[in-house]
Design a protein around this nucleic acid. Structure first.
Lengths: 227, 227
DNA sequence: CCAAAAGTGTTGAAACTACACCCATGG
DNA sequence: CCATGGGTGTAGTTTCAACACTTTTGG
C-alpha cells in the first residue's frame, strides 16, 4: 500500500481516568511511573495506540496490562493535543474515563503497580494528567445526572441507600432520602427484587436491579433520565 | 531530540461539521472532493494535523483554507478511530463542530468549493462523514438545551422571534411563543436593548443581546441554563 | 436496650402546559 | 385594508423542596 500522507506525525496515545466507589467515596486509579519523564510520579494509566486497534481498544488493553482491570464501562472523554504536553516530543492523547464496580477494586489490581486514591488525596500528576482528571470529574458529575451511569459503579444488585450514597459521593452534596427514592422509583427503571440485604446490623434493605431493557424501551418513547 | 516512541503511527486528521441557520433552517457546510478516494463526493471540510498546531488550530486553519470561514465557535466533538475509515491507510480523525452566524453564510464562502446544504438535502458523504454528521447533530440538539450555544448562530442583536425559530429549527418541533419568551426572560441572561428591528412589514420587534458576563456570574452561583 | 440504616406522606411554592386576542408596520 | 409577525395573562396540573418519626436487625 502506498502511504499518501507523508507528513511528520504526532504520536498517538490514550489515557484513562478510572473511577470507582470505595467505602462510600469516589476514588481514581493511578499508576506510578517507572521511566523518565516524570519517573516515580503518579499518572493516569495509558499508552500508545497501535496501528491495528481503535482508541477504545487501546484504552482497554492498557488498562488490562497496567492495572489488571477488564470488563469496565469505558467512554471517550476528550482528545488533548497541546504542543508541550509531553516534554520529549509531540504526543496527542485521546483520554477516556472508565467506571468499575466495587468487586474489581479489591480483586483487579493485585499484580500491578496501580493504587486507588480518594479524590482529596490525589497527588500532583505527570504530564497534563491533572487537567484530564479534572475534566473527567466534570464530565462524570454532569453526565450522571442525565444518563444512567451510576449503575456501572454498583454491584448488579444494590440497595436504594447505596444508590443514594453513590450520587452523594459524585455530586458532592447530600440529597433528601424521601425525595431521592420517590424520584428514582417514579422513573420505573428499577426492578424490585424479592431479596433482602443480609448480615447487616440494622434493618435489611430491599435489593434492586437496573432494568436496562425497560430503560431502553422508555428512551425510545421519549423518556429522559434525570436526577 | 531523540524520538522515544518509534512505533508506526496512524495519520492524524481533523474534520469539521459547520452549522448555520439560513432561511429559518439548519444547514451544514460541505466541500466537494477533488482527489481520490471519494473524488467528486461531498465531504466535511478537514485535513491533516501539523506538528506545530493543536487539533483546534488545525480545524480552524482547514476551515479558513477550504471554506473561507474564520471567527467561528468551535468545539471538539469526538475522535473517530475505526481501522477502515480511510481506504488508503490508518487515519484517526478528531471531529469538531462549528457554529457560524448568518452574515458568514453569505460572505464567507465565496472563493471556495464549499456549499451549504439543508439537513434534508445532504447527499451521502465520503469516508465515515455521515456518521460524524449524525453525531454532531445529536450533540447540538442535546447541548443547545442546557448550554447557551444558540447565540452563536444568531447575529449579536436578535429578536425573541429569531431565537425561538432557531430553537425550533434545531429541535425539530414547534414551541409555544408565550412559554418560550417567559422561560428565556426569566433566566435574566438577555439584555433588552433600546432598539427595534426596522424595515419589516409587520410590527417591529425589540432587539436583545446575550449578556454573557451576567450568564457567567449566574453560573458561578449555581445557575443552570435550560430550555 | 442500643446503634444504625430502612422505610414512609404531606404541604406550600414554583414551574409547566395549553390556550386567544390585539398591535404596529410595510406594501 | 391586508398580511405578517410582535406582544401579552391566566388557570389547572405537575413537580419540587423541605421536613420527623417508626421499623427492623445485629451486637
Amino acid at each position: 500500500m502506498s502511504h499518501t500522507y507523508e507528513f511528520p506525525r504526532p504520536a498517538l496515545a490514550v489515557d484513562c481516568v478510572v473511577f470507582a466507589i470505595d467505602e462510600g467515596a469516589l476514588k481514581v486509579l493511578l499508576v506510578q511511573r517507572g521511566a523518565e519523564p516524570f519517573a516515580s510520579d503518579w499518572a493516569l494509566p495509558g499508552g500508545f495506540v497501535r496501528l491495528e486497534e481503535t482508541t477504545d481498544q487501546a484504552a482497554l488493553r492498557e488498562l488490562r496490562e497496567e492495572t489488571g482491570l477488564s470488563q469496565v464501562f469505558l467512554e471517550q472523554l476528550y482528545t488533548f493535543s497541546s504542543l508541550e504536553r509531553d516534554p520529549r516530543e509531540r504526543v496527542v492523547s485521546v483520554a477516556h474515563y472508565a467506571l468499575v464496580r466495587p468487586a474489581a477494586v479489591q480483586g483487579g489490581t493485585d499484580a500491578s503497580q496501580a493504587r486507588w486514591f480518594a479524590l482529596s488525596e490525589v497527588p500532583p500528576l505527570a504530564f497534563d494528567h491533572d487537567g484530564i482528571l479534572t475534566m473527567a470529574l466534570e464530565r462524570l458529575r454532569g453526565k450522571v445526572r442525565y444518563q444512567p451511569l451510576g449503575f456501572e459503579l454498583l454491584p448488579p444488585k444494590f440497595t436504594l441507600g447505596q444508590l443514594q450514597r453513590l450520587y452523594e459521593a459524585i455530586l458532592g452534596r447530600e440529597l433528601d432520602k424521601r425525595n431521592f427514592r420517590r424520584a428514582f422509583l417514579r422513573m420505573g427503571i428499577l426492578e424490585e427484587l424479592d431479596e433482602m440485604q443480609d448480615n447487616v446490623s440494622h434493618r435489611p434493605s430491599r435489593l434492586y436491579r437496573f432494568h436496562r431493557a425497560e430503560y431502553k424501551r422508555l428512551v425510545k418513547r421519549g423518556f429522559n433520565f434525570e436526577i
